[in-house]
Design a protein around this nucleic acid. Sequence first.
DNA 1: AATCCGGGGGT
DNA 2: ACCCCAGGATT
Length: 370
Amino acid sequence: MSEKDKELFFSSELLGWYRKVRRDLPWRRSRNPYHIWVSEIMLQQTRVDTVIPYFARFVERFPTLIDLADAPEEDVLKHWEGLGYYSRARNLQAAVREVAASYGGEVPADKESVSGLKGVGPYTAGAILSIAFNQPEPAVDGNVMRVLSRFFCLEEDIAKPATRVRMEALAKRLIPEGAASDFNQALMELGALVCTPKSPGCLTCPVMEHCEGRMAGRENELPIKTKAKPPKKVYRLAVFIEGTREHAGRVLVRRRPATGLLARLWELPHVEAPNESVWASSESAGVWLAGSLAAEGLLVKPKDVVADAEHVFSHLHWYLKVWTAVAEDASLLPGEADDYRWVGPEDFDLLAWPNVFRKLVSDYFNRDFY
DNA sequence: AATCCGGGGGT
DNA sequence: ACCCCAGGATT
């Protein structure tokens, strides 16, 4: 069988398989380019089952592109809470505002314009153009690279950017005439349902007959991917600063900066310990915590350790010890200043939190301490 | 080319 | 534990 015949076999069988078994996913119920765009942003590095409830809530609250463009940022972040990679939400809103301003509120259907939108890279541009507009552009994600690596027995490292570029050339060639939308989704569907990272379901695979990786008995070794470095350990000390008088029953929280990790989300005040030893010893940690907070304008006296928490990011591993603390002089604490506020059980749920702090603060209000 | 950016589910 | 996920921006 020639290479061309093998490609024709692959495309034809895969397309037929997809049209028979495709899942009924919320964003597949229309070709609304805005809805498909939202789904593709949410699906970046995020599983389908995780996205489904977020997508439903998001398009209910922001049914049209203009609704999202006009919404307050806090509202958008609140609907993204827990989904991770929060710059996706900020970039998405910036991008729909650009579409509202420069493209009359209609998602542009040409490659240059779509690729120029914030948060839209090569994959997402191809996904929008192919899925929403049926244009023959490749949409190469991790699923597609795994499927192609196995079927064509490709040994290039899929962690390298250059590999994705070559895969795009192949994926584009494979798109059947007039079927870009279904075919690109078929590639991803196969990767998600059959050609899975571990123990691929070759026996139910529609293209197993000519899969070179399988024929070589190497389906479990492919794709080749260099390993990521382990996350760096960081030791942090956080505090529940308990309110008194008019702030009784509340704790002091702050909003994170507009860029970087967990941008614009709310958190307990916390500082980095110089090393694990200081962090772990209550004597030295209390001193370090008081000094570091004072340097940030928070004059408090640490009391007790009330919780331990860990949080693992892609590149960081937070070890968190959570203290209680009382103000040495409540008048010296920030009032309702920009990035600080007193929060109680009533308004806790109105703010957008990273999971680790949402759980800690929630437990605190539910008296799960002591 | 490396690093930064969350969180969760599968194995 | 480790892997990886419908990746993109920044350096």
